[in-house]
Amino acid sequence: MAELIEIKDVKKIYHVGAEDVHALDGITLTMKKNEYLAIMGPSGSGKSTLMNLIGCLDTPTSGSYRFNDREVRDLSDDELARIRNKEIGFVFQTFNLLPRADAAHNVELPLIYAGIPRADRRRKVEQALEAVGLAERARHRPSELSGGQRQRAAIARALVNEPSVILADEPTGNLDSKTGEEIMQVFEKIHGAGNTIILVTHEEYIARHSGRIIRLRDGLVESDVSV
């Protein structure tokens, strides 16, 4: 089976003043469909940087990143937008919901940019909210939701377009451990339904939900263990 994600010797260097920060210093890793991967590592080790590259939000300084057998570097802005829209569902630590739109509309966003007709959108939004257990809060704005509910809305948004992979950068980082555990149940359920998941976390107990743990240190892969 073809690899979903193929990263070869990827570097990301930030120039801060006169200094070069090697956020990623030559990462190589591959990932298949339906894997459940956890990325761990100390603060500043490059986890978020890697996630942003995988999510096509950012581009590497050097190295090769192939997504679904296509070299991302060669894609146009519109093709990248299409991949972010259809192939990738991103869940952020800080939710990143539109404050002035209700949960349903936030979930609807990727469908709107996908050009899906209104009736289908409504049905898909309902299903996604149902899947994360937020159906009865559809008309609430983010400010009227708890942290856990906000993250559920964000996960529903990531799910709704049935992407190839769901990327979650510390999805439980802003939640208490009980709520965090609930969110992890949601991910487990999504993975059970056949989705591919990459999840960044600091917590061992969260990482244990996954099938494979990659540890980063100083922009390098320190270990890559399947469990």
Partner: peptide, 13 residues
């Protein structure tokens, strides 16, 4: 931020 969010979920330029 809103523009970033929209781009992240697939809005084209």
């Amino acid at each position: 931020k809103e523009i970033g969010i929209r781009m992240a979920v697939g809005a084209r330029r």
